[in-house]
Amino acid sequence: MADTTSKPLRVIYGDVTLGVQSARTQYIFNYTRHGLESLVIDGKEWLYRTPLPTFWRATTDNDRGNGFSQKSVQWLGADMFIQDAGATVKIDGQPIDLPIAPSNNQYSDHEYAAGVEVTINFTTVTIPTTAVQVTYTIAGDGTLTVHVHYTGNANLPDLPVFGFRLIMPTKAVRYEYAGLSGETYPDRMAGGVPGTYTVQGLPVTPYLVPQDCGVHMATKWVKVTRGTTQDNTNLHPGEFGLQISSVDAPFAFSCLPYTAEELENATHIEELPPARRTVLSILGAVRGVGGIDSWGADVAKQYHIPASRDIDFSFTVAPA
């Protein structure tokens, strides 16, 4: 008989999904949809689609000028299409057989755990391929920790960015963060003043041609506040929030209403579609923007993201 009193997480061993529930949060991992399909806090859904690793930044003018996008174009494909190489599940630290039908017939509607870990293995659609793992760990208090690992491969081109992209169903009202003032990049952050900042709406920096923008380096936490949902029974629930916090090291992020691909396809800001989602990208590695010129000079070497090096980063997700 399972211990139903001391373990705080309820686990639902579904045929296609794994449900994990705590007092305020409910998670659903979908084995056919590459990971976390649903993240509900206090009854409000935070995910529009399953979050995935991200590898592309919308070409900046300097990227265009020095041919970086051509050199690294494989990462655009990797960003848009990724191969799911299978999931693994641990309960209370112990690996279990993937609990899909019929092996999940062993479970009941009263299953509990002190901790749940789901790892999704990805293979990039690059030549050669490389492996990326996303590990979701849910602690007893319901807090989610995400760890993202990129496996270095010297035969791949420099990365434009490496991160994890969460797309939220509706456009945020604002976000707050503890980090540096303004838009910063690894080679342009000396002027960033440490502090806590609030950004209303989800502004896209209005460069003449839309391009990667809105990155905030060296962040301790970011809190996203929304006021709307897609739930027809509760479209305007009042403001509610979600907070991403650093685990070991500060992270970078951007919080925009568009994906890199949407930005990439616009030649003017007014061509971007109406802003309706929140695209929160938590970034483990950011390439510098450069600035020597805009027709060939490369970003200084120390601000590249060499593909050969492993990249690891972690963050927690919790109610704000």
Binding site: N62, G65, Y185, D187, R188, Q211, G291, S294
Partner: peptide
């Protein structure tokens, strides 16, 4: 002329 600030640029000014 230096630090060509076209679009999202002006990285590496320290150098």
């Amino acid at each position: 002329e230096y630090m060509h600030d076209m679009g999202n640029s002006l990285g590496g000014m320290q150098a």
